[in-house]
Nucleic acid binder design. Sequence first.
DNA 1: ATACGAATTCTTTTT
DNA 2: GAATTCGTAT
Length: 738
Amino acid sequence: MLNFEQTQAVEHSRGPVLVVSGPGSGKTRVITERIANLINSRNVPPWKILAITFTNKAAKEMKERVDILLGSPGQAVMGGTFHATCARILRQAGSAVGVPNDFVIYDTDDSESVVKSVMKELNTPEQFTPRQIRNRISSFKTSGHLTESVSSIPGNGFLDEISIKVLREYDRRLRQSGAVDFDDLLNKTHLLLTEYKSDAATFLNRFEHVLVDEFQDTNRVQYEIAKSLAGKSRNFFIVGDEDQSIYSWRAADVQNFQRFKDDFPEADVIYLGQNYRSTGNIIRAAETIINKSSGRSEKTLWTENTDGDAVRIMVTGNSEEEAWFVANQIEDKLSGALSETNTYGILYRTNAQSRAFEEALIGLGIPYRLVGGTRFYERKEIKDLIAYLRLVHNEHDSVAFQRVVNIPPRGIGARTLATVLGYAHEHAISAVAALAKLAITDGTEIIGSRAKKAAAQFTSDYDYITQASENRSVADTLDQIIHRTGFKDYIFKLDKEQPDRADSRWENVEELLNVAVQYQESDDEASLATFLEQVALVSDVDQPDGTSDQVQVTLTTLHSAKGLEFSTVFLVGMEEGLLPHQRSFDTQEMLEEERRLCYVGMTRAKNQLFMTRSINRYLYGRSTSTISSRYLDELTQPEIEREHYGDIDPIAEDAQRNRTNSYSYRRNSFGLKDARIEADETNTQPPFSPGDKVRHGRFGLGTVISIKPDGKDWEIQVAFESQGVRRLYQSFAQLVAA
DNA sequence: ATACGAATTCTTTTT
DNA sequence: GAATTCGTAT
């Protein structure tokens, strides 16, 4: 049964709609039922519906559920992530904006290695890391400066200046390689939809209904794309919740809610506030946290569910004990009532925290599923093989070339590689062709004779594989690559000290072969191009995980836990510096996002919620004492149980709590350490006045714009040379005069 | 060119 | 503590 608001959303006939959906309010159900309703009751052809989701997994789930509701017609609904949707559009109509139809997608890694080599060529000062520059380039691309005129950006500072220079050459190289990065995928599509309307006509006219899920996590360009696609019909249905916005660091922009309201003033707003997922105790605790969020529009979450078990806060002595506590709890529950159907989520802020829990679970023989971490497609052996595939698909893909030219080691080192790339550039041919040519040129000293032999070897391997793969499946091609290059021997040579590691690498290779075979079976239009596209766009939540059905325990980051739910949730590592994370201490906006992250984590729980904290924790290999998370301190309800586990002294712990309360915490750029200072002495006079030059540990030099007191602290606005204007708290930011 | 060991930096979160 | 980069020996 749907409730009143849910029914409204499902049956809404036409025009724009904003659905504000609290956690556990049945939003996935609303979306799927709405799609089914459009097709069944309103005779909308399925292919005229576009449903954009946050992950591929969510898209898949949506399709499955629509399929259950109305059978195979549901398959024709177009659905996927923004990136996947854009890739499909560009594959068909990208040539108008300079994207060839056999384009490849460079992931963050690929794009960083292009940046690195551009920096080398341009002799960029070593002041900035490739990652910094790449991030800067990415934010240029997503900042709303959607067209070519990068130079017109109100740039400030050295970093921007350099980044723009690098960007030009970077773009040139991508074009030459027939590649687009994640940002281009969105930007080029946007450009196509707005400036080349006749080329994009099929898409601009196609959709009668556009639905966007997780709207709070869309960025500016994504919003504009969705708006264009929905523009004609104005049947634009968005679902989101600003309280669950946790991707602003990836340029997600909650301003999009306001943009939507401005662009579609006639929109209806439907609020889904009833929670069907969690117990009353869990909801109340979560509300306590989110209510302290600032600038949030007034709303409440409510439930008819019973109060259920108390929320439990567990303090342990160290991270091993924390892990053992969790593992033991799960073991107890697995042998109790409802043992078959219960699920368990262990949620943490950083991937690095997963290890202790893995070890404890293995120790008790409890199977688990790990999402994230070093993701499957980011493993070296997988990236190597994918790079081979990419090179077979497109010999101009120079990142792929550089990756595999010496794998397995053939004797083509940095020096030879540089010569080859130079030669390729000079003669405007692909690196593959350049290498082939240098291998057979006689009487020249362009490359040494040893390198020449190696080049001949690579060329013959490449030609063999390319020819043997013609009209073959992806799996066959992979097979050719593995055999011809001696990839297996290479892997076992690579880790001959740790055979375990080599075994696991080889398992990954076999898993990739499985993926390729499955892919062939699942898709009639299977081709190398679409396979590579799919591989480039999968998120960790959709990764191959052999034994999924039996496994009841999931380890995941808070970010990846979005959209998931578990009977029991363990929200672990509730410490200052971890949640909220240290890196968020600089600005209020970032700190607010940590609070929402905590809220998202808590609301994943259906029946029981544990929050754990460890008094000591290993950081950078050293045991460090921690401070209780502010969120734990805010949970003051008497019904919340606070307990200790393991070998700790509760009195000492209390003493520490009292002591820390009268301090403010200073972050320094080296780590958490015990950098506490007393707040009240230094803060009676403003430390700076507007116009002062200051220096910040990470942001560098800047000028104070304004300063005002906030309690015992100072809120300071600073215009940084390279990072723009930021609002900082002195107690965290530790600005010094410059 | 590669292999090995020492020194170094590093950790948010991800399409 | 781990992964990556750097330096030296082969």
